[in-house]
Structures are given as structure tokens and as C-alpha cells.
Amino acid sequence: MLPYLLLIVISSVTSELCPYVYDNQSYTRTSILTIKGLPTNLVVNPHTNDLLFTLIDLESLQNDEVQTKMDQYILRNGEPIKIDNVNGQDAAVDINYNKVYIASDDGLNVLNKTNKANFVSLKDEDIVQIYKPRNKDEIYAVIYPENEVYIINLKRNEKKKVDYVPCAYIIAVDEEDNIYYECDSKYVKVLLKDFQEPIEFVGIAKNTARAITVDSNNRVILATNDGLYQLRPDSVIPKKLMQLDFIPAGIAFNEDDLYISTNSIIYKYSQTECE
């Protein structure tokens, strides 16, 4: 009888320590940063474990008469470091070459060893989103004001407009070059490689998608008002992986660790203490 009781006690303790469930796995949750504003556009550099994010000033966001104020940050060893020589709006990591790219209102930049942004391409372009696929020397860039999507060839320093994606407010690209995005319709769609007509996912409420990324297993993960979903190119029905009790603003993965941001907070979800 004792082993059975011990099993119940261990299970009870684990459920108290790890009450958060993602993809049927138990997780702990820790607040790793509290900061004034809305941290979004999360991305992790796995070489350094740095977490990059864009901080949006909420007062300027809610004022239609002024330009929204945004700053780019690095969260390193629990300390936020502002990239203060550029008006950063998003970041992307080239994992193969250990490079960090910064999208700004005046082109594409790369982060140097002193945490400064050096200009590399697209002078005078207002880039609001970037996404770097793992398997190609290309960056997908969303350029304001039309929010059109371009592919930037990093070796040739050339840009090419992506056909059949009218605009994007969030964007991710899987290893098969399928493009997942949200545009003016406020519904999430996927444009399959070599196709012309995008496919709309069902079951996701209009205007509730907040962030999208691709995890280390090439799974496309969407963060919405009510939770996290896996999007697949062969199904219009998303698979729900996690329920959330807050509205997310950003999402990123570093192996098994999961980062989700919301107003003034960045959370880290981990399995370490749950195994």
C-alpha cells in the first residue's frame, strides 16, 4: 500500500509545481521579466540563450495622433539591454551563422558584439516584421505601410516580393516554404508552396491571433487570445496545445522551454522540475 500512497503524494506535488499543460506535458511557469509596456516579437538566440523582444509603449499605441514608440531589447541573464542606436521593430536569428538581425524603420541591421545595430540592407525601408527560416539564406520582411511581404536574399542583397500574400501582420515560414500569416481579413491563412490561393484555418475567432512562430521540431505554433495552437499545412483545423489565462503578445521556443509575453510580463515555461 505504501508505494501506491507514495505515488499519489508524488503526483500531487508534481501537479502543484507544474500546473501548466502544453501539448500534454506538465510545465512550471516563472516570470523572467517585468517591464512597463508590451513586450512582443519574441525570439531566442540558442547560441547565447539571449531573448530578444520589441517593447511597445502602450500610451503611444493607443494615441492615433502620434507614432507608436517601440524599442528593441535583449534579455540577457535576467537583465534587459536596450539596443539604443536604432528604432528596432523586430528581430530574427540566423542560427546557422549565429547572427541576429534587427528590423528598423530605416532598413535591415545586424547586431554586433557590443549590442549595437549595424546597417546591412534596405535603406529607407520601414520594416515592421522579419522571419528567418532555419534552412535558407533568406529573410522574410514585412514592409510598411502596405505590409507587403518580401524575401531578402542575404548573399546577393536582393529583395523579391512574395506573390499571393497581400499583406501580413504576423508571419512564419516552415521548412517546406509554406507561409503562415494574418492580413486584413484578421483570419490566419497559409499559402502552400507553389500555390496561388491561400487556405484559411477554421475555428480561430476573427482578430484573435497575436503571435506565430516555428518551434525546433518545425511545428508552426500560433498564440491566440485563448491559447496556443499547432497549425499544419495538411489540415485546416488547428490542434489546441495549451489553454491561456491571459492575452499573449509574443511567443518563442528554446528547445523544450517556452516563452510567452503579455502586458508588462515575459513568462518562461519549463519542464525541468516536472520530469
Rank of each mutant, 00 (worst) to 15 (best):
Ser121Cys: 08
Leu61Ile: 04
Ile81Ala: 09
Leu2Ser: 15
Ile170Pro: 00
Asp184Ile: 06
Pro198Ile: 05
Arg156Asn: 11
Thr14Phe: 07
Asn135Gln: 14
Tyr267Asn: 14
Tyr181Ile: 05
Pro19Phe: 12
Lys160Met: 14
Lys99Arg: 15
Pro80Tyr: 07
Arg232Thr: 13
Lys239Glu: 13
Phe53Gln: 01
Leu42Asn: 02
Tyr27Pro: 02
Ile151Gly: 05
Asn225Pro: 04
Asp137Ile: 10
Asp84Trp: 08
Arg156Cys: 09
Ala103Leu: 11
Gln72His: 12
Tyr150Phe: 13
Ala103Gln: 06
Leu154Phe: 13
Gln89Trp: 03
Ser26His: 10
Thr114Asp: 09
Ile35Met: 07
Glu125Gly: 05
Ile32Asp: 01
Pro19Lys: 14
Thr14His: 05
Lys193Val: 04
Glu59Met: 12
Gln72Thr: 08
Val128Asn: 01
Asp137Arg: 09
Ser12Val: 14
Val202Ser: 14
Asp163Phe: 11
Tyr131Pro: 05
Lys206Gly: 10
Asp256Met: 03
Ile102Tyr: 01
Ile10Glu: 13
Asn178Lys: 11
Glu197Trp: 12
Val13Arg: 10
Lys132Glu: 08
Pro46Trp: 01
Asp57Thr: 10
Pro145His: 09
Pro133Ser: 13
Tyr27Lys: 02
Val202Ile: 13
Asp50Tyr: 05
Leu111Ala: 09
Lys159Asn: 12
Glu138Lys: 06
Asn157Thr: 12
Leu5Met: 11
Lys69Ala: 10
Ser216His: 13
Asn207Gln: 07
Asn63Met: 11
Arg210Gly: 05
Ser104Gln: 03
Val120Ile: 15
Asp71Ser: 15
Ser31Asp: 12
